[in-house]
Structures are given as structure tokens and as C-alpha cells.
Simulated scan of single mutants.
Amino acid sequence: MNKLIYTLFVVATMAITTGCNSNKQKSETNTECCSNETKSCCSSKSEIPAIDASKVSVVYFHATRRCATCEAVEKVTKETLAKHFDGSVPFHSINREEEKELAKKYKIEWQTLMIMKGDNVKNITNEAFLNARTKPEKLEALIKSTIESML
């Protein structure tokens, strides 16, 4: 029974990550991968600000191609930060396929949502992908409580 559950978990994880890389594609003239609000997801390497280790930051590594869930994770995160922290907690949306050195530094291989301050890193990716589309209020509460615990 445990093998069956593990196999189902692996298959579901693969389906999620494969789907997250297959929906939309960025191009130089196409802004379809992000709205005006999330322009940072299409930014070039030189536009990504340094992550200040002395402050709480929210960092979202994503792929070039993004599914609806990937976009929902970013949307809920940004809305939560605006609603509860009024710009005091920076949000970094980073294309891990373009920013390979930064992804390597943080040992990122897939879409990842983390809240960090210095060496204190909370990876909330699983909860984010489980809740962003179906229970955004649950993700909002998790983001808020995690940030507050690090302030």
C-alpha cells in the first residue's frame, strides 16, 4: 500500500511540474507570460535586484513557461504582500531558466516559493501549489504568518 501511495505521489508531482512548464512561452515581443503587474517575470538578468539577507524577502523561482497554477502562486503572493505588508517585504520573481547562477546558489531545480531572511529559509512551495488556485486564503494566511514569524 505504501508503494502505491508513493507511486501516486511521484506521478502527481511529475504531472504538476510538467504542466507548469508547458502552458505559456515568453518571447521578446510577447508579454503573454506576464501582465503589466508582473513584468518582473519577463525581466532580463540585469533588472533583478540583489536579495538583501538582512531583511525578510519572498523569492519565487519559476520557469519560462508557466501554467495557471504557477501564475496563481505569484498573484496570491503579490496580493498578500500588498495587503498585509504594504511594500515593506520585497518580492522577487525570478526565471530560474534565465538566472541559472542564482538558481544554483539557492539549489533550485523546479518552481519554488521561499520566504527568507539570511540563512533562515522557509520553503512553502508545496502548500503554495496546493492552495493558490483552490484555497488562496489558506496560502495568504501561510505567507502572512511565515513572514510575521521572521520579522
Score class of each variant (00 low, 15 high):
C42A: 09
S43W: 13
E99K: 06
I124P: 01
T7K: 11
A50V: 08
N21T: 14
D119E: 09
F61Y: 07
S145F: 06
E127D: 15
T17N: 13
V10E: 04
A12S: 12
N36Y: 06
K138E: 15
R96E: 14
K26E: 12
K104I: 00
F91R: 04
I147R: 06
C42G: 10
S35Q: 02
D52N: 14
K122Y: 09
K24L: 11
E32S: 13
M116Y: 03
L151E: 13
A82R: 07
M1N: 11
N30T: 00
N95Q: 07
N36K: 15
Y106H: 05
V59A: 05
Q111T: 13
R65S: 15
E127I: 10
Q111K: 02
A50K: 15
N30W: 00
A68F: 01
Y106S: 03
S88V: 00
Q25Y: 10
K104P: 00
E97C: 07
K100Y: 08
T7E: 09
N131G: 06
M150C: 01
A72N: 09
T125C: 12
W110N: 15
S46I: 11
V89R: 02
I48C: 00
W110S: 12
I115N: 02
K55V: 00
I124S: 05
C42Y: 03
T64I: 07
T17D: 12
T13V: 14
E47D: 14
K107N: 13
C70V: 02
V121F: 04
V56Y: 04
N126L: 13
K26P: 15
V89D: 02
K138I: 12
A132S: 15
V73S: 06
A72E: 08
K107A: 13
S149Q: 08
F61K: 01
T31N: 10
C70P: 02
V58C: 05
A50M: 06
I5L: 14
L142K: 13
F91C: 06
H84A: 03
C20P: 03
A63P: 00
Q111C: 09
S57Q: 10
K105H: 12
K100T: 15
T7Q: 10
E109G: 09
K138N: 10
S35M: 02
T13Q: 10
E109T: 15
F91P: 00
M14P: 01
F129M: 15
Q111L: 06
